[in-house]
Amino acid sequence: MNDIESAQIWIDADSCPVAIKEILFKAADRTQTQITLVANHALHLPPSRYLSFIQVPAGFDVADNEIVKRLNSGDLVVTSDIPLADEVITKGATALSPRGELFNANNIKSKLSMRDFMDVIRSSGVQTGGPSPLSQADRQNFANHLDRWFNQN
């Protein structure tokens, strides 16, 4: 695995909650880890030598493809996008959802199957509702997994 100086964090920033970005921004300075946000709309970042932003054109999976193209084995990608998480794992990096769910080789295929199944259900007209609001437990779970990633690198 990469050491902490070379491992970096990529954020699928179009859908990442503000509370999670704030946790990551603080961690960047505290750990001196490079964090790059990738989104198809402009973002305001606090001043930090460890934060950068890549704006990509709007389009299906454009941000995801940019992250996959640039990430290295050992990096961390923060995303709730299951297909992106699958590609991240395939490249030897770690994928963590903003709710603190760690995606790995043991669970990603079942997550992909469930996602595809839910897409079929929704396309047939069934209302499935959206995700619940980010809870304090979600934030804590995310922070705990983030700390474990830092400790392993």
Rank of each mutant, 00 (worst) to 15 (best):
L45T: 14
G59V: 04
S73D: 02
Q127P: 07
P47L: 06
L24E: 06
G130H: 05
N72A: 01
I121M: 06
V120H: 01
N2A: 02
Y50Q: 14
L45N: 06
D3E: 02
L102P: 11
S6Y: 12
W10G: 04
R148T: 03
A63M: 03
D147E: 09
L45G: 03
P98G: 01
G100I: 13
N104M: 06
L76Q: 01
W10F: 15
T31A: 03
P83K: 03
K111R: 15
V62S: 00
K26C: 14
D75V: 04
L76R: 04
V88T: 13
F142M: 08
T128Y: 05
K91N: 02
S15Q: 09
V77G: 00
I20T: 01
S80E: 12
S48Y: 11
L102K: 15
A105E: 13
T31P: 10
T33M: 10
S132M: 08
F150R: 12
D29Y: 08
L84Q: 10
Q127M: 09
D119K: 07
P133N: 03
S48M: 07
L45A: 06
D29T: 12
P47W: 04
S15M: 12
T79G: 00
S110L: 14
S110Y: 15
A13Y: 03
F60S: 10
L76V: 05
I89V: 13
V120T: 02
L84G: 03
N141S: 13
A28T: 13
A7F: 15
A58L: 13
R49V: 07
N65E: 00
H44N: 05
K26Q: 14
A137R: 11
R49F: 08
E5L: 13
V68S: 00
N72R: 14
Q136R: 10
Q8E: 13
D81K: 13
S6Q: 12
Q140S: 12
I82Y: 14
P46R: 10
V88G: 01
F53W: 11
V18M: 08
S48I: 11
Q136E: 04
A85V: 15
Q55F: 12
N106A: 12
V88L: 03
F60A: 04
A13S: 03
L37E: 05
H145D: 00
N72I: 01
A42N: 06
A85H: 10
A143E: 04
A93F: 08
D86K: 13
T94G: 02
N104I: 11
W10E: 05
S6I: 05
E87R: 15
V77S: 00
S132Q: 09
L84W: 15
H41W: 03
D81V: 07
L37H: 08
M114D: 07
M118R: 13
D81S: 06
S80V: 00
P133G: 00
A28W: 09
M1Y: 12
R148Y: 10
